[in-house]
Design a protein around this nucleic acid. Structure first.
Lengths: 150, 150
DNA sequence: GCCCATTTGTTCGTATGTATA
DNA sequence: TTATACATACGAACAAATGGG
């Protein structure tokens, strides 16, 4: 599995699982197939399945319970509908990163006051992104039944 | 490192690394010890180290670059909520792109170190935005009435 | 109550690919 | 070319929880 389109295998599996959750093929409240089943379904190893499920868990889409299974806790649509602009921002940032990688400088150093100012700007941007998270996390309508964490 | 008090080993390592980052023992912009070094430091396996670093990376604290290392991108203290509008964030991104073109102009001896640091910061932004897209409004996936098992 | 199969979570080891120096 | 380092990928094992017999 060298390097197919779509990136690493575990990300492809995670993406496919996200689509299935979004299309209600795996409804909220139900359990996704077990690790062994997913391994057979996608023809990958345990590691890939674990990584994919771990990513979904980190994203807050699923929650696993030892001895029972991994249950869908939310749909990606609920997140997308609220973060469309943020997704657009992510695309722009990704483009910036691609351009920067393409602009590999040979060597040298020193000076670069403009770069320093740029870095400062990036730092400010970073703080604002985190602040945006804090801001949007509160008024989220669904998926927050007022239950205290665990 | 079987210590049930602090949870799994990889979470303990991640917590310790967070504290070191917060205490500037690992300053922003610097690289944390390599995987092999961390493995010796904590006396754990590669798996634990990689799981801990992966968690920090998912949180947007560090960013890894193959062949270079894992660099600190931000401190946990920077997670203080700061209100900001999406429009402001989009404008900042556009401004950043304009500055970036000026910085990567064919000026030959452009500072490679600064550009590299900038690239790390931009990569951090990408990770943060993607994480924001994923975790928006989902502080805790548990507590679903009827969905949570038993 | 006890044993056993299933399942998740964690941990261990190792190999390969790719990027950097 | 060689060495280092991260990312991904393969396999295997154990603990804890669940549920069926």
């Amino acid at each position: 599995m060298a390097d197919p389109v779509g990136g690493p295998a575990y990300q492809q599996v995670a993406r496919d699982l996200r689509e299935r959750i979004a299309s209600a093929q795996f409804p909220v409240g139900s359990a996704i197939p077990s690790t062994a089943k997913l391994r057979e379904m996608y023809g990958v190893s345990i590691t890939v399945v674990r990584a994919a499920v771990a990513q979904l868990r980190a994203d807050g889409l699923v929650t696993g319970y030892p001895g029972k299974g991994v249950f869908v806790s939310a749909t990606p649509d609920a997140l997308v509908g609220r973060a469309v602009t943020v997704e657009d921002l992510a695309r722009q940032v990704e483009e910036l990163r691609a351009e920067l990688r393409r602009a590999k400088s040979p060597r040298r150093s020193e000076s670069a006051a403009e770069v320093a100012a740029l870095r400062e700007q990036v730092a400010l941007l970073q703080a604002q992104v985190l602040g945006l998270y804090a801001q949007l996390g509160i008024p989220y309508p669904g998926g927050q039944p007022g239950a205290a964490p665990k």
